[in-house]
Simulated assay, not measured.
Amino acid sequence: MFSPLEKRKVVIVVMTGNMLLDFSGPSDVFTNANNCLQSLQSADGYEVLIAAPTADRKVIANTGVEIHCPYSAMEITTPIDTLIICGNDFRESSVAKFTDFYKWLSKINTGNTRRIASVCGGAFTLAKVGLLDGKRATTHWDLSDRLKKEYPGVLVNANHFFTNDGNIYTSAGVSSGIDLSLALVEEDFGKDIAIRVARKLVFYLSRPGFQTQFGNLLPVYESENIAQKIQYWLIGHLHESLEVSRLAGEMNMSTRNFTRVFHKETGIPPAKFIEKLRVETARKFLEDTDIPLERIAEQCGLGNLVSMRRTFLRHLMTTPSDYRRIFKTALKDAGIEDLLINQSPEDINTV
């Protein structure tokens, strides 16, 4: 069915409401792979088809750009080497217009498609038609909890930039589609070609780190949530010992009732919340300042360097020094470091 003498057909379906890089990134990877293969006088390569999930072939990106695709996905009836669903449209009003596309996608199987992949919210589209049932999958870190809730049969792991289970490949947010596409090129034509493509795109062949490092450890709570009510006070006292009884006192509650209400409203015990808040505060210092690591550990209540390193590895899968190297702001501090050093702990959260 998949003849080695033919170009590998890559169908990239552009969902509405997506980011442009969701589909343009993978498209550029496969197109540049063709260029690299041609420079080596190889007849191998990809036939890249950009398709819309609607019959009119039109897609509106969340940037407002209207994309006129050469194909509608439903027009493609011949075998596909690699199918990639890029992004998703979560608007309730858009569900009806995708009916035909979902019918088409539900017929995709190993008999007519060698590999099936998704970028970012595209995992929801695969899950909707049952392609992720019982499969390991990932999606954008900000969507992982929603994917778990809406499709409990999917084994969601939000740590990785991309993952695969059999012939199903899923990737995290936006640029992770490039990570995945480079891995697919390496799988098809070897590491040397994939490296050539990565260099052309000024991109890592295998990007260091984990998606966890980009997400927030703590969600944004409603104003009435007990965590939101006490968080402002906590930030100014992270360098102190914070027993649950002290937090309960600040809320004029008994320790037992505070612990019960806190766990019910946040899903985690107070001690775990405080640890995550300390890490979130420390990572902000690492991103925005050159304050020494020892001072950050002390200021955020993370103990010494050894204990801060251990805590960062547990939550972010990286060390404080590596986190600073990767995520430190590209802009000059413009005085923020001196301001923070001279502030009292109670004022830190106002910067």
Results as ranks from 00 to 15, higher is better:
K97S: 15
D81T: 07
F23I: 08
A33T: 03
A297I: 01
S72H: 05
S118I: 10
D322E: 12
A198D: 13
D133L: 11
G45V: 00
V261Y: 06
P269V: 02
L132F: 06
A282P: 06
K191I: 13
D100H: 07
Q231Y: 01
T212W: 06
H237R: 08
Q228K: 00
K332L: 15
A271Y: 02
M308W: 03
R114I: 00
F2L: 04
L132V: 02
Y102P: 06
I195Q: 12
D22Y: 00
R115T: 02
I341S: 06
D179R: 03
N62D: 14
V197L: 13
G111I: 09
F203C: 12
T113G: 01
V59Y: 14
E346V: 09
M1H: 06
L218M: 08
E92C: 07
A43R: 11
D192M: 08
L302Q: 11
V14G: 13
R314Y: 11
R283P: 14
R114M: 08
F285K: 04
R260C: 11
D290L: 13
L331W: 08
H263N: 12
L5A: 14
A123W: 01
P219A: 03
V14H: 11
N109M: 02
T255E: 15
A73S: 04
D100A: 09
P70M: 01
T350F: 15
L316D: 11
E6A: 13
D333Y: 06
G64T: 04
P320A: 03
F258R: 03
A334V: 04
Q299P: 00
R246Q: 11
R146P: 00
K149Y: 09
H237C: 09
S176C: 15
V279F: 02
R325Q: 14
R314Q: 15
L143E: 04
T113Y: 10
G303H: 03
L143C: 05
A33H: 06
R196H: 12
T318E: 12
F90C: 05
T16F: 08
F162W: 15
A330N: 10
F262D: 00
A61Y: 07
Q213K: 00
V220Y: 10
N342T: 03
V197S: 12
